[in-house]
């Protein structure tokens, strides 16, 4: 491959840097807000850098609310929901990608249509169903609900990635004696690692940011997740930006870690896959 020209590289750097600035600026704003004292947050003229550094907001956040607990809940719910959805979707996606059977189109539309259903229409029946089943105010309900809602997107997307993998690979493996599941896991899966990883990350953040379900289906504070705590800062006449920003900064950390380091992991998986070939 020819090495890209210098001009191209400069343009690329400029554009990438420009976008980074635009994307990051609101977060820069949140970070410095979290480090300002309440009185400085809205004082005019606006300060783009805290005049006086203060960690008071972080302290208040953990004192006022059981924020550590919420972090734990969020992590649990998101990991379980994303993992559960991904596994189920891998199974479903594989079958939808590889086989032809009556009703295949129906299944795909079955999943696709769920994305169009406005969630409010089913709120009361869903609430009453969960209530009847004793599932209100139990954390696993959140895991189950989030996993379910993620399955359609994951299945369709993973199917898309799977369809790009030639059948020949697993068919030759099966001739050599391993069963389908083995073939799927050992041979096919590593080849879609990049796509699977992207889908998993999306599922994770969807569950991570879900505000509506914890408010509706959980009662006690010990079952709340991070978005609920953040929403709590929106009060009747005011928004507690100091604590809200502190909470938002903390909320962003896992996602950033996941996305920054996922790349290395995915690359390693690809190399492993290539070696197998």
């Amino acid at each position: 491959m020819k090495k890209p020209s210098l001009i191209y590289r400069i343009i690329k750097v400029v554009i990438l840097a420009g976008f980074a600035v635009v994307i990051v600026f609101p977060f820069y704003w949140i970070i410095i807000t979290s480090l300002k004292e309440t009185k400085e947050i809205f004082s005019v003229p606006i300060s783009f850098f805290p005049r006086k550094f203060s960690l008071q907001n972080y302290r208040d956040l953990f004192q006022m609310l059981d924020f550590g607990r919420y972090i734990l809940n969020s992590i649990l719910v998101s990991i379980v929901a994303a993992s559960g959805a991904s596994v189920v979707s891998l199974c479903g996606g594989y079958v939808l990608a590889r086989f032809n059977f009556r009703g295949k189109q129906i299944v795909i539309y079955f999943y696709l249509i769920t994305q169009m259903l406005p969630s409010f229409i089913g709120l009361a029946p869903l609430y009453q169903m969960l209530s009847w089943a004793g599932m209100i105010d139990k954390l696993p309900s959140l895991m189950l609900l989030n996993a379910t809602w993620l399955i359609p997107y994951s299945t369709i997307t993973i199917r898309g990635y799977l369809m790009r993998v030639p059948r020949a690979l697993e068919e030759s493996a099966m001739i050599d004696g391993c069963n389908r599941i083995h073939a799927l896991v050992r041979i096919v899966f590593p080849l879609i690692l990049a796509g699977f990883s992207a889908t998993f990350r999306f599922c994770f953040v969807q569950a991570w940011n879900d505000l509506f379900s914890p408010i509706m289906y959980m009662n006690r504070q010990i079952n709340y997740t991070i978005p609920v705590a953040l929403n709590y800062m929106v009060q009747k006449n005011d928004i507690r930006w100091g604590e809200l920003s502190a909470g938002a900064v903390i909320a962003v950390v896992p996602t950033v870690i996941m996305f920054a380091f996922a790349q290395k992991y995915v690359a390693a998986g690809l190399i492993a896959g290539a070696v197998k070939e």
């Binding site: 809940n73 649990l76 719910v77 990991i79 379980v80 993992s83 559960g84 991904s86 596994v87 105010d137 139990k138 954390l139 696993p140 895991m143 896991v185 050992r186 899966f189 590593p190 959980m218 006690r220 010990i222 079952n223």
Partner: peptide
């Protein structure tokens, strides 16, 4: 790969149980 899937499933199960114990009224 299989180990990863197994790990995820186990994690899910454990987390589910922990959640159930923690969240019960």
């Amino acid at each position: 790969m299989k180990k990863l899937l197994a790990l995820c499933l186990t994690l899910a199960l454990i987390a589910g149980m922990m959640g159930a114990m923690a969240g019960s009224a």
